[in-house]
């Protein structure tokens, strides 16, 4: 088996505060092969977003954070890199898409200027004019036809769906190896969300970009990911290829999650068992014993 692009082993995270150490992650292991789409699904507070932030190298410099375990990106341990080296990866080889596109773009700069900044991260000498040509090209890839108008607009002049496409275009502009997508499209209408996901899937396939897809929406995960990790209170509880996991969820927590999702085919509001003790059952790995590390 080839070397994973991202390899997280026994990752723990705690925050030191007035009341002592609050443990957030209790040793999670996760890997992503080059070009693979992997989802991390869980409820709010389960530790999905902090995992992405660690991969992005944004918590390592936080004084109150206590991080254990290893995160290797392309064979290099993130903890052994300097701050500058980690920063060098961001926006070039690893990039991120956030949930709310409008608030993650800077409202006081035009899209064009922000695009220029992104492109300069990879090639510092990129001129403004060159950047605009390149940006227009990338925007056309995300099905934005009037690229000139968009580049001359401020984020608040564009719709949420349009901003989301701009974000995707920016994130993929430097052809990263790994894209971290934190609840992309959740703030958008269903039809726009569906278009956004289609677009993202097409682009990452074309560019062979690996994706860590973070979501609480099981339906979206099923449609986007090749492989799924289910996280509950800082622990991975179930892992497997998307179809296997959805056809045969084995962990009590995964089952409860799936029961709770309202069905388009009806059947009423499900009864949810209040007993959460079963949710701490050990990890169910659909791929265990299939030669994975």
């Amino acid at each position: 088996m080839s070397r994973p692009l991202l390899d997280i082993r026994d990752l723990t995270l705690g925050f030191k505060g007035w009341t002592g150490l609050t443990e957030v992650l209790h040793g999670i292991s996760l890997n992503i092969q080059p070009g693979e789409r992997v989802a991390l699904v869980g409820e709010s507070g389960s530790g999905k977003s902090v995992t992405a932030r660690i991969v992005l190298g944004m918590l390592q410099s936080l004084r109150s954070a206590r991080i254990g375990g290893t995160v290797e990106f392309d064979g290099r341990n993130l903890a052994q890199m300097s701050r500058a080296e980690r920063q060098q990866l961001r926006g070039t080889r690893i990039s991120m898409i956030f949930q709310d596109p409008t608030s993650s773009l800077n409202p006081v700069y035009r899209i064009g200027t922000q695009f220029h900044e992104v492109l300069k991260r990879e090639v510092p000498g990129f001129s403004y004019q060159e950047a605009m040509n390149r940006a227009a090209e990338i925007l056309r890839e995300v099905s934005i036809v009037d690229a000139e108008r968009v580049l001359n607009s401020y984020p608040f002049q564009l719709s949420g769906g349009m901003n989301q496409r701009v974000m995707i275009a920016m994130a993929l502009a430097n052809e990263p190896d790994l894209l971290l997508a934190d609840e992309p499209g959740t703030a958008l209408d269903v039809t726009v969300q569906a278009q956004t996901l289609d677009l993202m899937r097409r682009l990452v396939e074309q560019h062979n970009t690996a994706v860590l897809f973070i979501s609480h929406n099981l339906g979206v995960v099923r449609e986007f990911a090749d492989r799924v990790y289910v996280i509950y209170k800082g622990r991975i509880v179930e892992h497997g290829p998307t179809t296997a996991l959805f056809d045969d969820p084995r962990h009590p927590y995964t089952r409860a999650l799936m029961t709770a999702v309202p069905r388009l085919t009806g059947g009423g509001v499900p009864d949810i068992d209040d007993d959460a003790s079963a949710f701490s059952a050990p990890l169910v790995d659909h791929l265990a014993g299939e030669g994975r590390p």
């Binding site: 269903v190 039809t191 969300q193 799936m258 999702v261 388009l264 085919t265």
Partner: peptide, 28 residues
């Protein structure tokens, strides 16, 4: 309305819902 939506807009909305079961996929 869910089993026989008549308006194309309604169909579009129902068709865009991300789903998790095979029955739902069949409906869509």
């Amino acid at each position: 309305l869910f089993e026989k939506p008549e308006h194309p807009y309604t169909r579009g909305l129902i068709g865009a819902v991300p789903v998790i079961t095979r029955e739902e996929l069949a409906l869509r």
